[in-house]
Amino acid sequence: MLHEPASQSGPDPASEFKTRLGVWMFLLYCLVYAGFVVINLVSPTTMELTVLWGMNLAVVYGMGLIIFAVILAIVYDFACRRRESALADTPAKGGKQ
């Protein structure tokens, strides 16, 4: 006996697009996050450099990681919605790009 989801939802033709976009955005964020970790390991004093409005690189990069996550999330949702509505209008085309 397999277990069914809590509430049923129909097939999602955009799932392939969303999965691929999600993986690329995840890798992009990984790269930026890894950059933060690497700078701290290789050259910690670089983080002291004043880079914007008197704030140092550590503050700007750290805040930037949080803001970048929010921006990526909004862009991802926007792209997913567009694809979902486009495929809803033309169901015969399916989920392929």
Partner: peptide
């Protein structure tokens, strides 16, 4: 940053699979 993993990798597939 952990929420990026949740959004891009986990959210929708987990919702489709689980109960």
């Amino acid at each position: 940053a952990g929420w990026i993993v949740a959004l891009f990798v986990v959210a929708e597939p987990m919702r489709r699979l689980g109960k």
